[in-house]
């Protein structure tokens, strides 16, 4: 065995760990979802799942919320990452700390904090009424908008950091060169900065979408059970309906979405970079 192969063996414990605790259970779930009542291979569970308009509604809501959360997080994260890459000294440290520190706070705490802010007598309604924007409190708690705002906040660091990682490698000489050739700020941004930072955007979007599509605690606390998501349906199937096949089927669908996100983002990143690492 040559030196390179021996070093590759260092990955073995991690791979074994993932195989035993992640891949194997997922394979068992997949198998469970592909059996009929007699134990024969069948797609009946999937047909049944998609035949139910309630399930289709939950699937559509899950994808819609994940997509909108990703878009909102991107809109907030890109300028933040840009500022972070340009900042120096204490300003950079402050932004980084502001990004990373919230990761140490549990997601339950953050979701619960948002549920307090969204109340009729919460800070957001109070501020809007104080500014004269609204005359009476508007209902925000248990709405999809509230969920998207709360989720985007929780997942924001996962969007900012990949974009920042790419931006900090971007040579300042490139936009400067464009400027010397007469390019205005908008042209420089859309034709130089943005295309070169797209790999970070794709990675951040893949992270955020994957986390949003599978979130459980945040929707449970902010929108409740009248607007269920796929993860909530999985818990409901296993714990309350005690329907393991339904739970396995929904888990497999969620897994397929995750795989599609990973493959799609990899393909997109390869196209954007032209195959460069």
């Amino acid at each position: 065995m040559n030196a390179e192969n021996r070093i590759a063996l260092l990955a073995a414990p991690g791979l074994l760990y993932l195989a035993a605790l992640y891949a194997l259970p997922l394979a068992l779930l997949l198998t469970e979802s592909l059996r009929d009542a007699e134990g024969a291979l069948s797609l009946a569970a999937y047909v049944e799942f998609f035949a139910d308009p309630f399930n289709r509604g939950v699937l559509w809501r899950t994808l819609r919320v994940a997509a909108l959360t990703t878009l909102l997080a991107l809109a907030l994260a890109y300028p933040t990452a840009l500022a972070l890459s340009r900042a120096r000294g204490w300003a950079q440290t402050a932004i980084l700390v502001a990004m990373v520190l919230p990761l140490s706070v549990g997601v339950i705490v953050k979701a619960f904090a948002w549920s307090i802010l969204f109340r009729a007598n919460g800070a957001i309604n109070g501020a809007l009424m104080g500014l004269g924007v609204i005359d009476a409190p508007i209902r925000m708690l248990f709405t999809e908008t509230a969920l998207i705002i709360g989720a985007a906040n929780v997942f924001l660091p996962f969007m900012v950091l990949p974009i920042y990682a790419v931006m900090r490698q971007l040579s300042p000489a490139l936009p400067e060169a464009a400027a010397t050739l007469g390019a205005g700020p908008f042209f420089r941004f859309f034709r130089v900065t943005l295309p070169l930072t797209l790999p970070g955007v794709i990675a951040g979007a893949a992270f955020t979408f994957s986390l949003s599509v599978s979130m459980y605690v945040i929707p449970s606390l902010i929108v409740g059970e009248r607007q269920q998501t796929l993860s909530m349906l999985i818990a409901r199937s296993f714990l309350f309906l005690r329907d393991e096949q339904l739970g396995a089927t929904i888990s497999a669908i969620l897994l397929l979405i995750a795989i599609a996100v990973v493959l799609g983002s990899s393909w997109l990143a390869a196209r954007v970079t032209g195959g460069r690492p």
């Binding site: 109340r119 009729a120 007598n121 929108v223 409740g224 059970e225 009248r226």
Partner: peptide
């Protein structure tokens, strides 16, 4: 009339206490 349904009662009770 139903603002939401719950399976974790503590959050619902908190909303009652706060007048939501």
């Amino acid at each position: 009339n139903v603002l939401t349904t719950y399976s974790v009662m503590s959050q619902a009770f908190n909303l009652l206490e706060q007048g939501e």
